[in-house]
Structure formats: structure tokens, C-alpha cells
């Protein structure tokens, strides 16, 4: 791959063409600026904050650290893909109900990270939750409300 590149990305089950993109563009940039998927947020651009978290082939990653052109052939799920019909997912509802959303900027990244955590571990210990969310920064809540939201989802899914 050289210079300006054209490629296709599979995002939330749909096929997207990306045309004449600069080779160095991150997946986050392509999602937001070329494809209008602005749920993933851009803050640090160095993998520190987690606000751009997405799933690539089922793995939680920072989309700012993925070269978009090299993500061709992968299955990408963004925060938009977790509530495709426009209603809130159970994780999003719990974050709202527990006061885990304040300024809201980090929320999409947390939503993706919490879905990923609970898909792999239906009943995480408090320590496992903290470790799983260690790559997502929130400067408002102090994390207690976010951890409470995780517990709420665990309870609701248990039924």
C-alpha cells in the first residue's frame, strides 16, 4: 500500500468504501471524518484514554492506534453497532441509571469496553472490572458510578 489508498471496511455488519484516503489515517479518523460514525471519540490519539475503543475481530482496541487501511478484511464493531436500532443497550441504560454519564465524552469508549468485559465474563469481581476498564479514563465520575453500572448490568442479565 502506498500514498493515497482505496479500500473497504466491514463496520457493524455493513460494507463501507473508503476512497483516496491518506495511507497514515487511523481507523478513528476514518470512522469519524470519512464515514460519519462519530460515536467513537477522539481525545488523546495515543492509546491512553480509551474514548475511541472499538472491537476489531472481537478484540477491544483503541481505534486511534489502528491503521485504517490495514483493518481491511477485519470485522469492526463500533459503539453504534451495539445499539443498532437506536435504542439504548443494557449497558448504556445502566450507565444512565447509575449516574455513570456526566460530561459523557468517555462514555462511548466505556460502553464498548463494558460490553466486551461482560461478553467474556458474565460476573466479574470488582478487581476484574477495574482491570478490564483500566484503559478507559473518566475525569468526571471518579469511576464509582461506572462500576455500579457494571454491577447493575450483571444483576439484570442474571435475571
Amino acid at each position: 500500500m502506498t500514498g493515497a489508498v482505496t479500500y473497504r471496511l466491514q463496520i457493524n455488519g455493513a460494507d463501507h468504501a473508503v476512497e483516496s484516503s491518506w495511507l497514515g489515517e487511523s481507523l478513528l479518523y476514518v470512522l469519524r471524518e470519512r464515514l460519519g460514525l462519530v460515536g467513537s471519540k477522539n481525545a488523546c490519539e495515543e492509546g491512553e484514554c480509551g474514548s475511541c475503543s472499538v472491537l476489531v475481530d472481537g478484540r477491544l482496541v483503541c481505534s486511534c492506534l489502528e491503521l485504517a487501511a490495514a483493518a481491511e478484511g477485519t470485522e469492526i464493531i463500533t459503539v453504534e453497532g451495539l445499539s443498532p436500532d437506536g435504542t439504548l443497550s443494557d449497558v448504556q441504560e445502566a450507565l444512565v441509571a447509575e449516574g455513570g454519564v456526566q460530561c459523557g465524552f468517555c462514555t462511548p469508549g466505556f460502553v464498548v469496553a463494558v460490553h466486551d468485559l461482560l461478553d467474556g465474563n458474565a460476573s466479574p469481581s470488582p478487581l476484574e472490572t477495574k482491570e478490564a476498564l483500566a484503559g478507559n479514563l473518566c475525569r468526571c465520575t471518579g469511576y464509582g458510578r461506572i462500576e455500579a453500572a457494571v454491577e447493575r448490568v450483571v444483576e439484570l442479565r442474571r435475571g
Binding site: C64, L65, L67
Partner: peptide
């Protein structure tokens, strides 16, 4: 690699993934 690209410390013209 991508941190350097994002901060314009590296401008790749060809990449082998």
C-alpha cells in the same frame, strides 16, 4: 507506530502490515 503517525512524527508512504 500509530502514535508517531498521529503526532506527525512519522509520515509513511508505504506500509507492510
Amino acid at each position: 507506530f500509530m502514535v508517531e503517525v498521529n503526532y506527525d512524527h512519522r509520515r509513511p508512504t508505504a506500509v507492510m502490515s
